[in-house]
């Protein structure tokens, strides 16, 4: 690996780390219960919850570590943590 002076690296390059592989429990979002408040997005430590054109939130499972903060904080109880079966 070639080292640049000062150990300079490019911005936002951690996105190659698919930290979703750390996960044991997976958050499942229920759009019928969602009140579109965005609290899950605010508190997500991975900042991996995005918003769609209908204002529903979707976690990016490539990065979600399954911490469960979104499910714990959701005021509408619209997120459930489920054990994730892996191959």
């Amino acid at each position: 690996m070639k080292l640049l002076p000062g150990g300079i690296v490019k911005p936002k390059t951690t996105v190659v780390n698919k930290t979703g592989a750390w996960r044991t429990f997976i958050p499942v979002f229920d759009e019928d219960k969602c009140k579109k408040c965005g609290i899950c997005e605010t508190f997500c430590p991975e900042d991996c919850i995005s918003i769609d054109e209908n204002e529903f939130r979707h976690p990016d499972y490539d990065f979600c570590k399954g911490c469960g903060i979104c499910a714990e904080e959701c005021p509408a109880d619209a997120i459930e943590m489920k054990y994730e079966e892996k191959e």
Binding site: T13, W22, F43, D47, C48
Partner: peptide
């Protein structure tokens, strides 16, 4: 997306990246 990217390696549920 914020100015702090995904793929950082803080523990699951860490308060710091928030």
């Amino acid at each position: 997306m914020s100015l702090f990217a995904q793929g950082h390696t803080a523990c699951a549920g860490c308060g710091m990246p928030i």
